[in-house]
Design a protein around this nucleic acid. Sequence first.
DNA 1: CCTGGATATAGATATATTGCTATGTTATAA
DNA 2: TTATAACATAGCAATATATCTATATCCAGG
Lengths: 100, 100
Amino acid sequence: MTLERQKLAAEAIETAATMLKCIGHPVRLQIIELLDREGEQNVTAIYEALRIEQAVASQHLNLMRDKGILASRRDGVNVYYRIDDPRVTRVIDCIHHCEL
Amino acid sequence: MTLERQKLAAEAIETAATMLKCIGHPVRLQIIELLDREGEQNVTAIYEALRIEQAVASQHLNLMRDKGILASRRDGVNVYYRIDDPRVTRVIDCIHHCEL
DNA sequence: CCTGGATATAGATATATTGCTATGTTATAA
DNA sequence: TTATAACATAGCAATATATCTATATCCAGG
């Protein structure tokens, strides 16, 4: 019953597009990659690894959390972010394996 | 030698982000889906299937062709578009299979 | 309570994107 | 040619995004 090439419902299209657009930004994509490779990281580790402003990192992290792409937990003064959308991880893997 | 979780080069990040951002739009995602399901289609078939203005379809198609996501061929008065980036097809499949 | 490190948010500016309407172009057929 | 269907593009207004600087908040230690 499952079609190989299925058609997404209108709502699914919207959420998928939102997710893809969200990770379709160089900084956010690098954050995703970092979290995918290294597991959850706090904000300092992220903005130092990417050599970006703290505020910029925080804004992108918040955006992705709002969209359900990332989740966070606070441990004392640190806030650790992790990937929370399985589709994101799979999309990243796809892209890696598609390098031609 | 191939790492399971590799790190994309700076340039690869840019092109991947550009591609993801490009398909991260409801109309463009639906066009991709249509072409993925049905194979190449002309502009009329596309804008009728999606119930959008011809100019809107044309603009999105041009954008995706510019980014290397789609390719087109003219046959008389018709212009047929098809997916030209294998990563796009795989990403779409990922998203379909990730529906939870 | 006060300090300092870690994050988050506000406000402003610059730029990009979107969708619309109208018009231009191209190719075929009569 | 001229008419017409199929596409493409231009120009515009509305909206959304990105980035920067400054400031605010939160929390552990002293």
